[in-house]
Amino acid sequence: MTVNEVKDALHGTYLCGEEHGEVEVHSACGSDMMSDVLAFLKDQAVLLTGLCNPQVVRTAEMMDIVCIVFVRGKMPDQNIIEMAREKGLPMISTRHRMFSACGLLYEKGLRGGASD
């Protein structure tokens, strides 16, 4: 699916990076612990998190993650949005909680990717 389709499935809104909406998403992971996110390589992944700090954007950058979704209606501050914009990283905010957000994407066929 695409980043746009992720946004629609989660009834979300873009915080930045709308212009990358057609980028393909192949897998997903949900976590508030960045080292857990860093532990497994992912392919064109979307990161769902309730954590709102600049290290979320950095982690995404290091992992070549294609989109960040903030769950529970969390709103990162303007600096964080600016940082993601500079890196060409789309960010989405959704009202759904982590469990439901992951479930909605799973239902659309998205998977966690191969575990190694």
Partner: peptide, 8 residues
């Protein structure tokens, strides 16, 4: 802050 999982 999202760290301290003992995974680093």
């Amino acid at each position: 802050l999202g760290f301290g999982a003992g995974m680093g």
